[in-house]
Design a binder for these strands. Structure first.
Length: 565
RNA sequence: CGGGGCAUGGCGCAGCCCGGUUAGCGCGUCUGUUUUGGGAGCAGAAGGUCGCAGGUUCGAAUCCUGCUGCCCCGACCA
């Protein structure tokens, strides 16, 4: 490709709107332009990179037996109503205004299941892996970070269908392995975390993450290999346990203690001696949740314990009505009304505790959970913290921000049941198809790569994703017919050898060409300048290492060939 | 949806508080000329309903009201 005829609008100045590295680089190197909030146009150079990523995705999906579909973005809303997801998605789903009954597909579980229902009728038809690489539409409340969170984005989505749970395990593992190969081929430093399956439904799920300050997810990782989304992460922190005491509970005045920290400071107490109370309305029923000290309640864990997303913290008025006290003085004993009481595992059967007396300005001490109050259930409710021992071998946990690249789910039968996609098993019994769902954000793969692959000059593409193999820079072509001829010959020779060559034949100064080349970041640059060419030689530069060298012109194709071997 | 910020030639910004020439600057673009291995020099030129709609005023980019768009933080994220 001749750069003089190619559209690569590089920018010297960075648009003020772009904050994170990948976004700045995409704009500066002419890969992408923004059309509206969360909506982007891909320019030719960026489109090539997207296609390279999609080809890797196809390659690996085909390798595990995936079959590619092309599905409509316009969907009849009825199908989505049958699975209850019109309501579950709420505002996130785009509804077509001037054609009743159509929505823009935010994903495609329903459509895949619909077609499965039409034609998959026997366990003999399974397993199947169906996938698509297509645009999805989600009305994100706040698009941000360039292409990382958009209202319209490309997603590779795959769906597995099996007749048995063992079959689902096999399909899931195939995707797990394929995803590892995909991200390795793309050159990403990723890690895999156990994740919450949230409202997608289903039993197990894992996320493929790339550590990045631009990420929206928070993960716990440790040197032992432990890695989990903070939504589900646990630590090996020991429980509070019991102390040697049989003292009876005793009310004491705490007039100026409104917070756990106040109690700690005013009464010389430790985290382990304090039981914090929070009240949530779960399915409209109040629940008292006891946490150790300042431990933070994890709402994802709350959701999985109570198996509902219909919950919220109780409001001040409700709180007083339910407990008889205001925030700061609430506890498990002497509650005004009888409500369910649950506690975090760290407090299991603990004694010697301090907690609110449900009377403003008073607390109880010497509380024994197994003697003085009835804890209905103990569960893991807490959000773990940096530095806690990991569950594998106790090595310290680091809490890092990460970008979610891919997510694999064991869906089970949620969609097949709702849409009656049933099969007959070997015994002739009708059963719903057992499904899995596996997504990868295509633009996110590029953004994640860029978050890791750049320096102060610009992008540093790797061999797998680079839009061109070779960047041939012809310097001052109009001043030297010899240089021009040598570069033209080389352009043809490299192209004939099977390389994608970007030939900078523009009438621009060498400085502009060098800077643009470093910004665009093609892995190997070949620089045709008069001095070297007059000597029958040519210069190359490896973008990643800044290694430079001069070789005979006749050897340069071999040099490139070796570089890409 | 809460909080904050921004909107001025293609891009990046100043001007606005304190209303008053012809709305400036850098980059880019065009013409000429000199330059030619790390974003060149000189000379000239084009390009703007100051986001939109009202209002105040003799007079509004500037003050007031409403709206829209975009960015950041938070909430949300199947």
């Amino acid at each position: 490709m001749r750069q003089s005829k190619y559209f690569i609008p590089t920018l010297k100045e960075v648009p003020a709107d772009a904050i994170i590295p990948s976004h700045r680089l995409m704009l500066r190197s002419g890969l992408v332009r923004q059309l509206a909030a969360g909506i982007f146009s891909w320019l030719p150079l960026g489109h090539i990179v997207l296609k390279k990523i999609m080809n890797i995705l196809r390659d690996e999906m085909d390798a595990i037996g995936g079959q590619e579909f092309l599905l409509p973005a316009l969907n009849p809303i009825e199908i989505w109503e049958q699975t209850g997801r019109v309501e579950a998605m709420g505002d996130v789903m785009f509804h077509i205004k001037n054609r009743e009954g159509l929505v823009l597909a935010p994903t495609h579980e329903e459509i895949i299941t619909y077609h499965a229902r039409q034609h998959i009728q026997s366990y003999r038809d399974l397993p199947q892996i169906w996938y698509q690489i297509q645009t999805k539409f989600r009305n994100e409340p706040r698009p941000k970070s360039g292409v990382l969170r958009g209202r319209q984005f490309l997603m590779k989505d795959a769906y597995s269908m099996d007749s048995t749970v063992e079959g689902l395990d096999v399909s899931y593992q195939k995707h797990y392995d394929a995803y590892c190969r995909i991200f390795e081929r793309c050159g990403l430093k990723f890690f895999i975390v156990g994740a919450s399956s949230g409202a997608m439904g289903g039993s197990a799920s894992q996320e493929f993450m790339v550590e990045s300050d631009a990420g929206e997810d928070v993960c716990a990782v440790s040197d032992s290999g432990y890695a989990a989304n903070l939504e589900v992460a646990t630590s090996a922190l020991p429980g509070v346990g019991r102390i040697d005491s049989t003292n009876a509970i005793e009310e004491f005045a705490t007039p100026s203690a409104k917070t756990i920290n106040d109690l700690k400071n005013q009464f010389s107490l430790t985290e382990n001696q304090l039981a914090k109370s929070v009240v949530y309305m779960v399915n409209s029923e109040p629940v008292l949740i006891l946490m150790r000290g300042n431990d933070e309640l994890n709402e994802s864990k709350l959701e999985s314990v109570f198996k509902t997303n219909q919950f919220r913290p109780a409001e001040a008025e409700e709180l007083f009505e339910i407990t008889g006290a205001h925030t700061g003085s609430i506890g498990p004993i002497n509650l005004k009304t009888k409500i369910k009481i649950v506690a975090d595992n760290l407090l299991k059967d603990a004694n010697g505790l301090v907690s609110g007396a449900n009377k403003d300005g008073f607390h109880f001490k010497n509380i024994d959970f197994s003697r003085d109050c009835k804890i209905d259930e103990y569960h893991d409710f807490r959000t773990i913290c940096e530095g806690e021992p990991c569950p594998i071998n106790g090595s310290p946990i680091r809490v890092v921000k990460a970008i979610e690249l891919g997510h694999i789910f064991k869906l089970g039968t949620k969609y097949s049941t709702a849409l009656h996609a049933n099969i007959l098993d070997a015994e002739g019994v009708e059963k719903p198809i057992i499904m899995g769902s596996y997504g990868i954000g295509v633009e996110r793969v590029m953004a994640c790569y860029l978050e890791q692959g750049f320096d102060d000059k610009g992008i540093i593409w790797n061999k797998a994703l680079t839009p061109y193999h070779v960047h041939l820079l012809g310097l001052n072509l109009l001043r030297s017919p010899e240089v021009q001829q040598a570069c033209e010959d080389l352009y043809k020779e490299l192209t004939d050898a099977g390389f994608d060559v970007l030939f900078d034949d523009r009438d621009e100064s060498p400085g502009i060409k060098f800077n643009d080349a470093d910004l665009i970041g093609i892995p190997i640059q070949i620089i045709g300048g008069k001095k070297n060419i007059d000597n029958g030689q040519i210069e190359f530069k490896i973008r990643a290492t800044n290694e430079r060298g001069v070789v005979n012109i006749t050897d340069i194709v071999e040099k490139v060939r070796n570089f890409y071997k």
